[in-house]
Design a binder for these strands. Structure first.
Lengths: 338, 338
DNA sequence: CTGAAAGCGCTTACAG
DNA sequence: CTGAAAGCGCTTACAG
């Protein structure tokens, strides 16, 4: 299995040129005759030459790796949303000649502010952080002096580039959709203490109410997770709203099931809408009207942004907002004709 | 943001020793006085020294990276099983001082036998391949002369280490459980043309029937996916079996819903059992009896094995079989008393 | 257009 | 125990 690795020197020798010229040819840099270049490239393929990116990295001070950090809470616990984003990140990175080193930030790592191995070993040129990690841990990572782009979250007091969905606006329009369908008793399902994105969605919902001068009824605010993010048994209010805006599809799914189990029909008695357009929305009968996040767009822009920062590291704290759209399905009952 | 990186030379200079000694101290190698070593380590922390793993890699010919390849088909399309395995792989790798470069093999890459970027650039010391990729593509990857360990699949004619669940045996015991509950009309839901693991599960089911001299009824063989792996509408037989062994939890979930939609109660009219113990099994009411795969075990052993192969590359084709266990839930109706 | 020289930050073998 | 020398495989000036 141990076969000698081909180097640029080998190609150079077999052609009687210098490795400098080979390097130029292979990297498509000026300074090689067209004919010689072709010859070099041909021999390279023939010898099955593979560049030693490690040697290249040492010289250029670029590893060609992007580190991706996902908090353990988000990586599995039924929230495959970030896994899907990662998929597009990986594809976009490879298209841009970068590899991705994915690492999972466990709760312990966050708490103890452990520097990820890939950072300790200087193996990445930049960092993409997916899903909210604690303010303190993020501040720690920022001190590493590696370009960072946040995806789907940000902290006002930590000046870093971030790619976010327009949660506020999307929630505003989906709530408006309920209002336009005739609903006025509209609740919200979600714990606003949990993540910034949930806050934004809650506030978008509030905006829709405010705009129509519909009084917010606090008894219609229900939760599917506690302050630590653990799922809890949903407590329905004594008198239900006629519709609930849920902070995510899983919340909508769980609420839908809770309603069903208490004898309420969806959408016959209570309408529900979700967020994210993940499997949970189609796992429920009837399928849940939700907000589609442009995952692919987010990933693409994130990779583009981190590459920019790696190349010329000026500025930071740029906010990139991605639009979202309603996916109409059958979980909303129309109470009025239009 | 551009601060000069600290090197071993910097530490050496500040202490008036040579970088060779610093290297020995930092790598915990013999040949440094205990006192001096402590001093070096102290200064290193103080200066916030981070080893340049790239330089180290160039010299040692070890990147300290493990490449992980997951076929796109498995990475998202509702089969988060492999994503979960990856999580443990990553954690075990980091514990062993390896980083993981995760790459998704798209259908196109497989078809065109595209060498993953990380391999083209010689960025990994070994490869972990999760979930079945085509024979041809695997053969191509083997030619790269990198140690490879397969997870959850293998090809008889490609001699590579592989970690697999004992699908045959697990299916045999879960089918036996149905038989012991009084069922004799037992079907199988799954497409045996799709993956080797489905074949094994099908055959384990057959063994249980054979052992009890129960005649296999071909009309009880139903499918939830076509030969390309796309989910299809399940066609129930004219006369249903009283129980179905499903090749995975999603199949069980889909079959359960199909049965419900046709007016059959689960397990009142028809019992079902699944495989894998993923969310789908608890997403259905009643929860589905299934087979728990020891994901963590598989990941741990896979990482251990690839590390062994990286360290001393003798031998190959070792087969490591991981046990599995039944998780009893409520989707099986007992037809007899014991 | 072509290439000799230097150097990226380590580690390895060897000498003292 | 300590360190000078060589070298891993590239790329980057620079000289011709």
């Amino acid at each position: 299995m141990i076969t000698k690795k081909i180097t640029m020197q080998d190609i150079a020798d077999s052609l009687g040129v210098s490795k400098v010229t080979v390097s130029k040819a292979i990297n498509d840099k000026p300074g090689v005759g067209l004919e010689l270049k072709k010859k070099i490239l041909d021999v390279a393929t023939e010898m099955d030459y593979k560049i030693n990116s490690i040697a290249k990295a040492l010289k250029t001070n670029r590893t060609g790796n992007i580190g991706v950090i996902i908090s353990d809470v988000f990586f599995t616990k039924n929230e495959y949303f970030y896994t899907k984003i990662f998929r597009y990140i990986e594809m976009n990175a490879v298209a841009g000649q970068y590899n991705t080193i994915l690492t999972i930030a466990t709760e312990e790592n966050e708490l103890t502010k452990k520097t990820p191995l890939m950072c300790m070993e200087q193996k990445v040129d930049g960092l993409l952080i997916l899903g909210q990690i604690s303010n303190q841990y993020l501040a720690h990572l920022k001190r590493l002096n590696t370009p960072i782009v946040l995806i789907d979250f940000y902290y006002r007091d930590i000046n870093l580039d971030h790619i976010v969905t327009d949660n506020f606006y999307a929630s505003y329009i989906i709530t408006s959709h309920l209002i336009e369908s005739g609903h006025t008793d509209i609740g919200f399902c979600g714990n606003v203490n949990l993540y910034s994105s949930i806050q934004d969605r809650f506030l978008g919902y509030q905006k829709a109410l405010l705009e129509r001068k519909i009084k917010y009824n606090e008894s219609f605010l229900i939760m599917e997770r506690d302050d630590k993010g653990a799922y809890i048994d949903i407590q329905l209010p004594e008198k239900n709203a006629t519709a609930y805006v849920c902070n995510c599809d899983k919340a909508a799914y769980l609420l839908g099931r809770k309603l069903n189990s208490k004898g309420f029909k969806v959408p016959g008695d209570v309408s529900i809408v979700g967020f994210d357009d993940v499997e949970f929305s189609t796992m429920f009968q009837p399928n849940i009207t939700t907000v589609r996040i442009r995952i692919e767009d987010m990933a693409r822009k994130a990779v583009k942004q981190i590459m920019r920062r790696i190349d010329h590291d000026e500025g930071s704290g740029q906010r990139i907002v991605i639009g979202a759209e309603i996916v109409y399905r059958d979980s909303v009952k129309k109470l009025i004709d239009d």
